[in-house]
């Protein structure tokens, strides 16, 4: 059997260690080894955004990064977006605006949107649209998603 690589990393603030095959993607590691199945594989080629996570604060497609490359990094996934059982404003707004149907795209879109609002708390509608252009959704037609993100941004600005 191939050599397993030992990796130490942080996921959603918690120190995590795992062994993985050198060919395994970060997405596979998250899903199959760490039981964090919120990130989904929609394509495996970096074109759909369903696997979106953050690495050291940068939005990436976890299907395009090897698990071994997570060494020493900080990974953020959908499972870390709600804090202490309390939904993030983006999460609440997605429910309120009915911005999801089948829900497979939802984790990736929320991770991407949260990353946007951290960089730019007051995005225009167009900025939201283009920021999320790498996150495909086959069900909703995107309208409610954009409304939910703008609404959450507004609420967060009010609270800040």
């Amino acid at each position: 059997m191939s050599n397993k690589i030992h990796v130490s990393t942080k996921v959603n603030g918690d120190a995590v260690e795992f062994l993985c095959d050198p060919r395994e993607t970060l997405l596979d590691v998250l899903r199959d080894r760490l039981n964090l199945t919120g990130a989904k594989e929609g394509c495996g080629t970096g074109d759909c955004g369903a696997c979106s996570v953050t690495v050291d604060g940068r939005l990436i497609c976890s299907c395009l990064m090897l698990g071994a490359e997570a060494e020493g990094k900080e990974i953020g996934t959908i499972e870390g977006v709600a804090e202490g059982g309390e939904l993030h404003p983006l999460q609440r707004k997605f429910i309120e605006h009915a911005a999801l149907q089948c829900g497979v795209c939802t984790p990736g879109i929320l991770v991407a949107a949260k990353n946007l609002l951290e960089k730019n708390p007051d995005p225009t509608e167009e900025q939201v649209r283009y920021w999320l252009a790498g996150n495909l959704c086959r069900c909703t037609g995107y309208d409610k998603i954009i409304r939910a993100v703008l609404d959450a941004a507004e609420e967060m600005r009010g609270a800040a």
């Binding site: 959908i78 999460q91 009915a98 984790p107």
Partner: peptide, 23 residues
Amino acid sequence: RSLGHDSGTLHVTGAARYVDDIP
């Protein structure tokens, strides 16, 4: 009435299980 998705909370937290997510 416009009630919200029954699995809404599961979906936004990534906890909704599809076949590939079943342990």
